[in-house]
């Protein structure tokens, strides 16, 4: 009998606690914040410096996708002929079937051009069965929104900055060690 009463006391205590400070959220009115690493639907990024997508349509994400939810094609980049862009090829057509996507993030990992990201978009309901098949302009829109919200920096740029900093630190350490070695030799 005692343990049942103890359990009821616990329930009562947390009822009052919950009235003071609720644990739950009134979801549609109060959207849940997502974590920085949250993996929502994949989206394509926009290179605002040049004014074209990062994607070159190289198909590496399509070959690595476990569910074959994407398709793409590539074309010659008109901006490259004019000398504005360093990309010789550019994406012509890209489509992701977000109903089929399992949000695993493999496409982001294998991409060599920082062209695809897992956005924070996760609330997309449509009325048709194929309504979640998003083509290039839609994907770029989601990507632009994500880039703005998170102040996105391309991962390769980040990695290069990190490597440069490490190299600089190493060089500084070597320089600091050199005079010491030189004095030792002199001795």
């Amino acid at each position: 009998m005692l343990n049942s009463v103890k359990g009821m006391m616990l329930t009562l205590a947390s009822t009052f606690q919950g009235l003071k400070k609720p644990v739950t959220r009134e979801y549609p009115k109060q959207p849940t914040p997502v974590q920085p690493r949250f993996m929502g639907f994949p989206a394509l990024t926009w290179d605002s410096g040049v004014g074209e997508p990062f994607c070159t349509g190289c198909m590496v994400c399509i070959r690595n996708c476990p569910t074959q939810c994407m398709s793409a094609s590539m074309m010659d980049n008109p901006l490259n002929e004019e000398g504005q862009s360093h990309r010789r090829k550019i994406v012509d057509y890209f489509e992701i079937n977000l109903n089929r996507c399992i949000l695993c993030g493999i496409c982001v990992e294998v991409c060599n051009f920082d062209a695809i990201v897992m956005s924070h978009e996760h609330e997309m309901s449509t009325y048709e069965r194929n309504g979640d098949r998003v083509a290039l302009p839609g994907l770029l829109d989601i990507g632009k929104k994500y880039q703005q919200e998170t102040a996105w920096i391309p991962p390769t740029v980040l990695a290069k900055a990190k490597k440069d900093a490490e190299d600089a630190a190493k060089a500084a350490a070597a320089e600091a060690a050199e005079p010491a070695a030189a004095t030792q030799e002199a001795d």
């Binding site: 329930t11 947390s14 974590q35 920085p36 690493r37 949250f38 399992i102 695993c104």
Partner: peptide, 29 residues
């Protein structure tokens, strides 16, 4: 019915941590 609410509250906390680490609450990859 009540233990479910207590247990799920704790589980939800763990899953928020998983989301922060891996980016997904359940299908982490």
């Amino acid at each position: 019915m009540t233990p479910t609410m207590f247990a799920f509250r704790g589980r939800e906390r763990i899953q928020s941590l998983f989301e922060a680490i891996s980016g997904a609450r359940m299908m982490h990859n």
